[in-house]
Amino acid sequence: MEKLFADFSLGLFVFQTLIFIGLVLLLKKYAWKPILDAVNEREEGIKNSLESAEEAKKEMASIVADNEKILKEARIERDNLLKDARSMKDKMISDAKSEASVEAEKLITLAKTSIENETLKAMTELKNQIADLSIDIAEKVLRNELSDKKAQMSLVEKLVEEAEGNFSTKQ
């Protein structure tokens, strides 16, 4: 202990204290502060970059998800459109078919009625002609036969008889 006290030197103590405090202050101003500031700044920079990179990654992921969503929607839309188109086509075909068959039916009915009419007409004409002809023939026959009075009378009787017969069967 005595040796320690003997070793103590005031001059050295004062020098050491002053130099050390001076060194702390000088280094603080010219070295430590700039160094620590630079390091801090760099660390902040790295932190920020990492954060923004993370953000960008997230954004990318959301964009990809959005894209997929849009694609999916587009696909559904397309499928719907195709489905609609197909059903429309089917409907059109079936509509056309049914319309055509209706039309055809109509035409056939029309044709049938016109044929019937024509037939009726032809028949009537034919009947009329036949009647005319028969009347003509009958006129001629009658003129020939009814040249005498007796024959005329018997015919009248006969016709009446016939007409009566006709009349009773008709009733």
Partner: peptide, 29 residues
Amino acid sequence: DFSVTKNVAMILIVSALMFWLFTNLAKSY
């Protein structure tokens, strides 16, 4: 006694060295 002894000289040398070294480091940043 306020002599610049061997130890004081060494303290001065080390201080100068540190000042030079770390101010240079600060500048390099």
